[in-house]
């Protein structure tokens, strides 16, 4: 057992953990159930969280490595997500939804880094976020409509 101390969604947490505990299991244990496991090989992107603002795969990161860092999951970024996910809902591209949290987290990271990405930049940035339902086009249309609406100063979809 070892002690770690980190900020999870803005709250400081101290916990005693096994040295081999993965970050995904740590955050789920702390109520962040949006974080999903789709593979064990860092291929699907479902478990994406932000560590110090950068997207990381929580299935491939030891919780111990998060010691002293700041972790955000979708639970802590609801408002930022709400600004654009309604556009994806309007496309019906949420589908089964299991990949959504990882994909939404990575989209948040993308839009922070590059507020006005091109379609190709969106595809490239989100390439590691697999989705088996939607065929991806609807997700892209949703993000594009959000960007267009924001550019036009329109109100966002609720």
């Amino acid at each position: 057992m070892m002690e770690i101390r980190l900020k999870l969604n803005g709250k400081t947490i101290t916990d005693h953990i096994d040295a081999d505990l993965l970050l995904i299991d740590f955050v789920r244990r702390h109520g962040c159930l949006s974080v999903k496991r789709g593979c064990e090989t860092a291929n699907c992107g479902l478990c994406t969280v932000l560590m110090d603002g950068k997207p990381v795969l929580s299935c491939s990161l030891l919780a111990a490595r998060a010691d002293g860092h700041e972790i955000y999951t979708l639970e802590g970024l609801q408002q930022e997500a709400e600004a654009f996910v309604g556009f994806i809902a309007d496309e019906g591209a949420d589908q089964c939804g299991f990949c959504n949290p990882g994909y939404v987290m990575n989209t948040i990271a993308l839009l922070r880094e590059n507020p006005n990405p091109t379609d190709d930049e969106i595809r490239a940035y989100l390439a590691g976020n697999l989705c088996r339902c939607s065929g991806y086009e609807g997700q892209l249309r949703g993000i594009r409509r959000f960007l267009n609406s924001r550019a036009e100063g329109g109100s966002h979809a609720e």
Binding site: T73, I88, A89, D94, C96, V104
Partner: peptide, 10 residues
């Protein structure tokens, strides 16, 4: 979809 926002917000 009726569950869309629940799903998209994790």
């Amino acid at each position: 979809k009726k569950d869309a926002m629940q799903l998209l917000l994790g």
